[in-house]
């Protein structure tokens, strides 16, 4: 879907108004915009900069610094697989690599039908029940190849 199709200037105005008076409003604002539009539309930049009195360069700097913020929408679901040490200690890497090669994707890739984007994450705090993953906001522990297949199937991949 082209970014512009998701962009609604009136809605953006409401979101900005709800956050503008916070101390340090930019991160909460960007999260709220992404929650509504699925990404930070480039067309929204001017309005954000205007409201917060920051430059386009500053805004771009912030959006590109943080892993969470997207400049284009992700798939309908996001599957995050932990790559950190505790998950590695119980075979997390092999599991993730197996899945990516089976799907023919790289990290951050999306299945051809647009259902699932696969992303790395560094620790979900589930280190005592590793390897761990998260589908959207739902956590899953002690994953194995079968469990990953089922999660992908549920997500429509």
């Amino acid at each position: 879907m082209p970014a512009s199709a998701d962009y609604d200037a009136a809605e953006l105005k409401l979101i900005i108004a709800a956050h503008q008076s916070l101390e340090g409003p930019l991160l909460p604002l960007l999260h709220a915009i992404q929650d509504s539009f699925g990404h930070i539309p480039a067309k929204a930049h001017a309005q954000i900069c205007d409201a917060l009195n920051i430059t386009r360069a500053e805004l771009h700097g912030v959006i590109s610094f943080y892993h969470d913020f997207r400049e284009a929408p992700a798939g309908r679901h996001v599957l995050k697989i932990c790559r950190a040490e505790a998950c590695q200690s119980v075979g997390g890497n092999e599991l993730a690599e197996g899945l990516l090669s089976k799907l023919g994707l790289d990290w951050h890739g999306t299945t051809p039908n647009g259902a699932v984007t696969i992303e790395p994450v560094y620790c979900l705090g589930l280190c005592a029940c590793a390897p761990a993953a998260m589908v959207d906001d739902r956590v899953v522990g002690r994953i194995d190849a079968d469990r990953l297949d089922r999660l992908l199937a549920e997500a429509g991949a």
Binding site: C82, A84, E85, A86, C87, Y122, C123, G125, L126, C127, A128
Partner: peptide, 9 residues
Amino acid sequence: EGDSGTFAD
């Protein structure tokens, strides 16, 4: 709390 192996927080 980003350290792997920690979840007390």
